[in-house]
Amino acid sequence: EALLLQRRRVTVRKADAGGLGISIKGGRENKMPILISKIFKGLAADQTEALFVGDAILSVNGEDLSSATHDEAVQVLKKTGKEVVLEVKYMKD
């Protein structure tokens, strides 16, 4: 459990079709971090076996998301290339 509370760096390699394969919720306007709300089976994020629903995305390719709005986070995630480095931390409810 202590492991979950540490920052983790996960590299996601996207397939030619399909994006990261995650849905996010939260954002500055909700006074919440950007959280992974869904991981789609078989897509890139799922294949890492290292990302979990409830993980907060702290940064994407080094771009800090700690004070991002939901829309800003969506845009940052959309413009990523084939390889995406996510810094995440599991957030307890």
Rank of each mutant, 00 (worst) to 15 (best):
25 K>W: 13
68 A>H: 10
8 R>H: 01
50 A>E: 09
46 D>M: 05
25 K>H: 15
63 E>I: 15
56 A>Y: 04
45 A>F: 05
14 K>F: 09
64 D>K: 05
20 L>F: 07
1 E>G: 10
66 S>D: 07
16 D>C: 11
66 S>Q: 13
4 L>F: 13
87 E>L: 06
2 A>L: 12
16 D>A: 13
47 Q>T: 12
61 N>A: 04
92 K>T: 15
27 G>C: 03
71 D>A: 15
38 K>S: 10
56 A>S: 08
46 D>E: 09
63 E>T: 14
49 E>V: 06
76 V>D: 07
67 S>G: 14
49 E>R: 13
63 E>F: 13
59 S>R: 10
14 K>C: 12
23 S>Q: 14
24 I>C: 05
54 G>W: 04
91 M>C: 12
68 A>D: 00
69 T>R: 07
74 V>I: 14
32 M>L: 07
91 M>W: 09
61 N>P: 00
57 I>T: 02
52 F>Y: 14
37 S>K: 11
4 L>M: 14
12 V>C: 07
67 S>K: 13
22 I>A: 01
34 I>P: 05
65 L>V: 12
48 T>A: 13
17 A>I: 14
24 I>A: 00
39 I>C: 02
27 G>L: 02
37 S>L: 04
47 Q>M: 15
92 K>G: 15
88 V>S: 03
56 A>W: 06
41 K>N: 15
2 A>T: 15
1 E>F: 06
87 E>Q: 08
59 S>I: 04
52 F>H: 15
61 N>R: 00
60 V>E: 04
58 L>Y: 07
90 Y>L: 10
14 K>P: 14
89 K>E: 14
3 L>E: 09
21 G>R: 03
4 L>R: 10
63 E>R: 15
7 R>L: 12
36 I>S: 01
46 D>Y: 12
63 E>D: 09
13 R>N: 12
7 R>K: 15
61 N>K: 01
45 A>D: 07
61 N>L: 00
7 R>A: 08
88 V>T: 03
51 L>S: 03
89 K>C: 11
88 V>K: 02
43 L>M: 11
47 Q>A: 11
65 L>E: 01
17 A>R: 14
66 S>F: 07
39 I>Q: 03
91 M>V: 08
53 V>W: 00
26 G>V: 00
66 S>Y: 07
49 E>Q: 15
46 D>A: 14
68 A>G: 05
64 D>G: 06
18 G>H: 14
20 L>V: 07
14 K>H: 11
24 I>V: 10
54 G>P: 00
15 A>P: 13
89 K>Y: 10
23 S>W: 10
3 L>C: 07
18 G>C: 08
55 D>G: 03
17 A>K: 14
69 T>P: 03
2 A>S: 13
19 G>R: 09
13 R>E: 11
36 I>Q: 01
2 A>G: 14
2 A>R: 14
23 S>K: 10
60 V>D: 04
36 I>W: 02
1 E>H: 05
16 D>T: 09
69 T>N: 07
60 V>C: 13
48 T>Y: 03
92 K>S: 14
1 E>I: 07
66 S>G: 09
12 V>W: 04
2 A>V: 15
45 A>P: 04
57 I>W: 02
88 V>W: 02
47 Q>F: 07
71 D>R: 11
